[in-house]
């Protein structure tokens, strides 16, 4: 039931990524199992041993370890010699640069700007930078700079003030 049938299931980069993820999941599963096993069993409160708080997490930890192991095993069987290079190509592609740019801006906005200045101003700055970057430097067919700057400013101010007014004033939602 895939929604993106164009990507082949045997993509070597994904198989290598699955192998790495499988190993990470085994690690995570073991950590969860250990933490659940050593979790307080509340003996002082004389609860029944079958109702300890760590019961379900232990089961989930074991299940995750098992599924992670199966995924790693399955991927190791399908893995090819060139899979590592294919995965590196995906990680250093132009698409990754675009993703990292969005993430970087989102992190700066969320962790750096929000709370240090009025929300509408922080949002307007984020939107302005986002549009300018993606319509010029990161665009396949960059638009003219004055045109981009004009629209970025209009959208940034419109959205920043609009969200402040609609959410804060009309729907009485408290903003960060």
């Amino acid at each position: 039931m895939t929604t993106e049938p164009t990507i082949p299931a045997e993509d070597p980069a994904r198989i290598r990524a699955d192998l790495i993820t499988g190993i990470v999941l085994v690690g995570l599963g073991l950590v969860v199992t250990y933490l659940s096993w050593t979790m307080d069993r509340l003996e002082v409160r004389r609860i029944h041993p079958s109702t300890i708080p760590g019961l379900v997490p232990i089961i989930l930890g074991v299940a995750l370890t098992l599924c992670g192991g199966l995924l790693a095993f399955r991927s190791a069987r399908l893995d090819t010699r060139h899979a590592g290079a294919a995965l590196v190509r995906v990680l250093v592609s132009w698409q990754s640069v675009r993703v990292l740019a969005v993430l970087g801006m989102a992190l700066v906005y969320t962790l750096g700007l929000v709370g240090r200045m009025p929300f509408w101003l922080a949002s307007a700055l984020f939107i302005f930078t986002f549009i300018t970057l993606f319509e010029t430097v990161l665009a396949d067919r960059p638009k003219s700079l004055p045109w981009t700057l004009f629209w970025a400013l209009v959208v940034a101010l419109g959205a920043g003030l609009g969200i402040h007014y609609v959410f804060g004033q009309i729907f009485l939602v408290r903003l960060p």
């Binding site: 970025a152 959208v155 959205a159 969200i163 408290r174 960060p176």
Partner: peptide, 24 residues
Amino acid sequence: PRERLMAVIYVLCVVGSFAITQRM
């Protein structure tokens, strides 16, 4: 254009996750 839309959507994501309990 999605470049203009997605920036605004992210701001709405911040508002949407903050507003219910008002915790960063």
